[in-house]
């Protein structure tokens, strides 16, 4: 077992892990941060996306020891301390960008990474950016819409509610 220390959502976190312990396992099992999900075993679904040192990564495809010393951000740290949703979270609720909620943490974290690099993405930008995030419920329509709305763009002309 190796001790790892990292900052998770601004707080110091540490624990003992095996070499094979994945970052997602450390978050879910050691830190009880179960908002980050595992939806596949081939690094494709994106339910596990978190930020490590400000970059979106798949926490199921990174060892916990590789995150030693890193700044990690997860879905649990996205809302304000008083519980107020951040702009992206609020846009997901406003535009019905989630149904079962399982892919949602990864979607929100990917969206945050996208908007950091590309503050006014086009529809095509958003769709391509989500290549590594699979949703089975929404058909993506309202996710794309929510992300564009979160970027401050007018989505009123996009079809339907």
């Amino acid at each position: 077992m190796t001790e790892v220390k990292m900052t998770v959502n601004g707080k110091a976190a540490s624990g003992n892990v095996e070499g094979r312990t994945l970052l997602v396992q450390f978050l879910r099992e050691n830190l009880n941060l179960t908002g980050t999900h595992v939806g596949c075993d081939t690094s494709q679904c994106g339910a596990c996306v978190v930020h490590v040192n400000g970059e979106a990564v798949k926490s199921c495809t990174m060892l916990a020891v590789e995150a030693n010393g890193a700044e990690v951000a997860t879905i649990e740290g996205q809302a304000a301390p008083d519980g107020t949703l951040n702009t992206i979270q609020q846009a997901f609720q406003d535009h019905h960008g989630l149904q079962c909620g399982f892919c949602t943490p990864g979607m929100v974290m990917s969206a945050a990474a996208l908007l950091k690099d590309n503050p006014k993405p086009t529809e095509a930008d958003v769709r391509h950016y989500l290549d590594g995030n699979i949703c089975r419920c929404t058909g993506y329509h309202n996710i794309v819409k929510a992300i564009m709305a979160a970027s401050g763009q007018d989505v009123g002309t996009i079809a339907a509610e």
Partner: peptide
């Protein structure tokens, strides 16, 4: 949505 958007869902 509130619990799902904040990682507080209970799956």
């Amino acid at each position: 949505d509130i619990r799902f958007l904040t990682g507080e869902g209970n799956y």
